[in-house]
Amino acid sequence: MASLRQIAKKAGVSPTTVSRVLNDAKYADQVSEACRKRVQEIAKEAGYQSSYHRRAIQKSVAETIALVLPFGQHKPDETNPDSLLEPVFHGLIAGIESAMHGSGYALSLVGPGRTKRAEELGIAGLQSKRYDALILPTLTNLYQDVTTQIRQTIDHAQNNARIVQIDYHNTAQSNHPSIYFDEAQACHMVLEHLHEQGHRNVLMLNRSHTSNRDHYYQEAGKTLGMTVQTQTVKIDSQTKSSLAGHTDTTEAAENSMLVRLATGPHDYTAVIGYNDSMAMGIIRALHRAGKRIPEDVCVVGWDNTLAPFASPALTSIDSQFVEMGRQAGKLAIELASADEAKLAAIQKTRIVLKPELFCRESTGTAANL
């Protein structure tokens, strides 16, 4: 196998440049694309492997667990939406890292690529199995934006990789160990809290006509004798995960709520946001319309990420993102280190996380309609 110096000599560049291209992704972008391709082609012909992958092959493990993030659609020379700004990933990453601390495994984030090249590198990493286990969150509609190629790669990996699945729904039919959040119980918990305050008619601002959460709210409403209206907020798919992602969601919810306030009907005493970002928009719209919170209208959020910083402080469901990540990290480590005899038992693991409702200043006794 060729050395860095031999590849550098053949490519007509310095060994440092070759190392940056082949071993150090942090500085790879400092090398021109033409030079990168030339070095990579020469290295491939020479059968070169980085020192990291040589160690991994010798030990038969990669010492890496990957968290797959959704890849946004992109146009040439444009940056992709950055899904790391979604609150779900803040908590997941914190939880996974806490579980992996001291384990000897490293966490690798696969996607979302900020350039086409980064996306290609992420796909290549999945295909070459540079990880010992994969954590695959399917919590949100974000995966609707996954490119065809990465979706095919993930689907293929599900047939043969050690995968931990995270979802809002019971994944009992999954072939992989899974953690899911009891969304149905969370919806019942929200309505039960409002019911105790005298609310009987509520409005929910949703972000999808096909949301399971809408179904859960409707079922909980029937049980409690409450009417739950749904209003869909349209959010531009190209901007919902952008740097201003929270702002886009908040503004979309604010505009949707302002239309409802202007045109009616006004047959509700509480409004529920799909997430805290939407709830912030609802609060802004109510303030602009001269409505008092909670005296005139109560507001409830979801995720408990922005809730403490709202004005008034927002009642919100905690989606347990950090605990999801912690449990996923523990399962991924077990999968990565398990022999075939233990693997089957681990793959049957199903962990259900229970919701918690944080009651704050945005909810109170229902106003008279």
Rank of each mutant, 00 (worst) to 15 (best):
M1H: 07
L4F: 14
Q6L: 12
S19L: 07
V21A: 03
V21Q: 03
L22S: 01
Q30A: 13
E33N: 08
C35E: 12
R36L: 07
R36A: 05
K37R: 10
Q40W: 04
E41R: 08
E41I: 13
E45M: 09
Y48D: 00
A56V: 02
I57D: 10
A66G: 02
L69M: 15
P70T: 12
T79S: 07
T79Y: 10
P87W: 02
G91I: 02
E97Q: 14
S103H: 10
G104R: 12
A106L: 05
L109T: 15
V110E: 00
R114H: 15
T115D: 09
E119N: 08
G122V: 07
Q127W: 10
Q127L: 15
K129Y: 07
R130D: 04
R130P: 05
A133W: 00
L134W: 01
L136W: 02
L142P: 05
L142V: 13
V146Q: 11
V146Y: 03
A157H: 05
I163A: 07
D182W: 03
A186G: 06
A186C: 08
H193D: 03
R200W: 04
R200S: 02
L203Y: 01
S211V: 04
H215F: 15
Y217I: 04
Q218P: 01
Q218E: 09
E219Q: 12
A220Y: 02
G225R: 05
T227V: 11
Q229L: 07
T232C: 13
S241G: 13
T247S: 09
T247P: 05
T247I: 04
D248V: 11
D248L: 02
A252P: 00
N255H: 13
S256K: 00
T263D: 14
A270I: 12
G273H: 03
G273S: 10
I282E: 01
A285S: 06
H287D: 05
H287W: 13
K291C: 02
P294S: 05
P294L: 02
E295N: 09
V299A: 03
A307F: 03
P312E: 15
T315G: 03
I317C: 04
E323L: 15
G325I: 00
Q327I: 08
A328I: 04
K330N: 03
A336S: 10
S337A: 12
D339E: 08
A341K: 08
Q347P: 00
K348N: 11
T349R: 06
R350Q: 11
V352G: 10
L357S: 04
F358D: 01
T365E: 10
